[in-house]
């Protein structure tokens, strides 16, 4: 959807069904079904390294309740998770662990950087010998949620943005985000 039809309806008999990204109807319909399924049952990995994790817990708890959007099955194991919410500071010591957790997750996998520390190092950007200046130095990030820490509404908005992104995915054109990441191509 959202792609302009180059042929107008008058030139062709019957009803024109818009096929996004130049793929055929079967593939895009299948895309839609798969994306619908994926985007509505994202299983997040528990990954809280500092105070953002408190807001993440609050987002999962009764008042904000992320299970309304299909996030309720938070997993303690990366093998069973689709989404990693980086909730907190990533230090030089933690970076290899984060990378290993990401590598252990099954495809397709998504990353949400929550809060100033995960985006850029935040308050530890200057004069810190131990903090990574943004989680995207370690793994590719899909959605950034600013705040210090972000309120649960902001995190939910970021997660809904990720769902939107997944719904627009195209099976044929999709690339693994880690491909070329270590070589600095992204």
């Amino acid at each position: 959807m959202g792609v302009e039809n180059k042929v107008s309806a008058e030139e062709l008999p019957g009803r024109v069904i818009p096929a996004g990204n130049g793929a055929n109807i079967v593939v895009t319909t299948l895309d839609k079904v798969i994306n619908w399924g994926r985007s509505n049952s994202l299983w997040p990995l528990y990954f809280g390294t500092s105070c953002c994790a408190i807001e993440m817990m609050q987002t999962g708890a009764a008042r904000h309740d992320w299970s309304r959007f299909g996030f309720e099955v938070a997993r303690p194991s990366p093998r069973q998770a689709d989404l990693i919410i980086i909730a907190g500071t990533i230090t030089n010591k933690m970076a290899p662990v984060l990378r290993r957790l990401y590598d252990q997750m099954a495809e397709p996998k998504y990353v949400l950087a929550m809060g100033a520390c995960a985006i850029s190092g935040g308050p530890f950007f200057y004069n810190s010998y131990s903090v990574i200046k943004g989680a995207d130095h370690v793994i590719p990030v899909d959605v950034y949620v600013p705040g210090c820490p972000p309120r649960p509404e902001a995190l939910l908005d970021g997660m809904l943005l990720l769902q939107d992104k997944i719904r627009k995915e195209n099976r044929l054109a999709k690339v693994n985000p880690i491909d070329g990441f270590d070589e600095g191509e992204i």
């Binding site: 030089n92 950007f125 200057y126 004069n127 810190s128 010998y129 131990s130 200046k133």
Partner: peptide, 16 residues
């Protein structure tokens, strides 16, 4: 010793 004022680490530190 990283908490000394004169500690330098050009790879990891952004000095302000």
């Amino acid at each position: 010793y990283p908490l000394r004022k004169d500690y330098v680490d050009e790879a990891n530190m952004v000095i302000k």
